[in-house]
């Protein structure tokens, strides 16, 4: 046996090694899915750096640009989702059904709920299962209402004011300034829920569209 081995060239030895490794690998059951260890240090760094969240206005920009490289998940129960304010492109996935929602671990997933707490809980659940691109929408739906649909425009310069106004109009809201808010500090709270929001067409492709390109050689 050993004698046979010494007669082989280096290439032939390597080929033999590959053959043996391949033969043994028939029995291999690669680790796929299932349990992933939670790494508190890694999570803490994500939180400290703030990469676990996305400001509501950034989300608004992405929706206006019709970007399709993220999935927006609304965590409220279906009744609240159907009755209340909805962010365009949002999919309704209550926390209990996250596991069956067909989310991929390498997708950019944005979580939104009434407030940040519920979204943060879902963030932890997904992170603990090894989902890598999960973010919380800052301020939840309240933040969306205050920052995007009815932003305060006192004390901001004209350019910024025009920008905020354009964004809020796009989503069927209106900017608030000093006078109106002095008169009534109420944003039309839940009444706005009924506003029909122009939904930009969701680009057809969750699956195949502009995924990252990777070159071979």
């Amino acid at each position: 046996m050993l004698q046979f081995f010494t007669t082989l060239s280096t290439n032939q030895r390597l080929a033999l090694l590959a053959f043996v490794l391949g033969l043994v690998a028939i029995a291999a059951t690669p680790a796929r899915g299932g349990r992933v260890t939670v790494d508190p240090r890694e999570m803490a760094i994500l939180m400290e750096k703030g990469v676990d969240r996305v400001p509501a206005r950034t989300l608004a920009d992405w929706i206006i640009q019709a970007r399709s490289d993220f999935r927006l998940i609304d965590l409220r129960d279906p009744a609240a989702f159907a009755a209340g304010l909805r962010i365009p492109t949002a999919e309704n996935v209550p926390v209990g059904t996250l596991a069956q929602a067909g989310l991929a671990r390498d997708e950019k997933i944005l979580l939104v709920a009434d407030d940040e707490a519920r979204a943060a809980q879902a963030w932890f659940l997904l992170e603990a299962q090894g989902f890598k691109g999960v973010r919380i929408v800052e301020g939840g739906l309240r933040g969306w209402r205050e920052q995007v649909m009815y932003p305060r425009v006192d004390g901001v310069d004209a350019a910024q004011r025009a920008r905020l106004e354009a964004i809020s109009r796009h989503f069927g809201g209106a900017p608030r300034s000093g006078e109106t808010s002095a008169a009534s500090d109420t944003m039309p709270a839940l009444a706005v829920a009924q506003v029909v929001v122009p939904v930009p067409p969701i680009p057809a492709a969750k699956k195949g569209a502009p995924a990252k390109k990777k070159e071979g050689c």
Partner: peptide
């Protein structure tokens, strides 16, 4: 991945 060092789903 067989020895559990690499999770293929990641």
């Amino acid at each position: 991945s067989w020895i559990g060092f690499l999770n293929l789903s990641l």
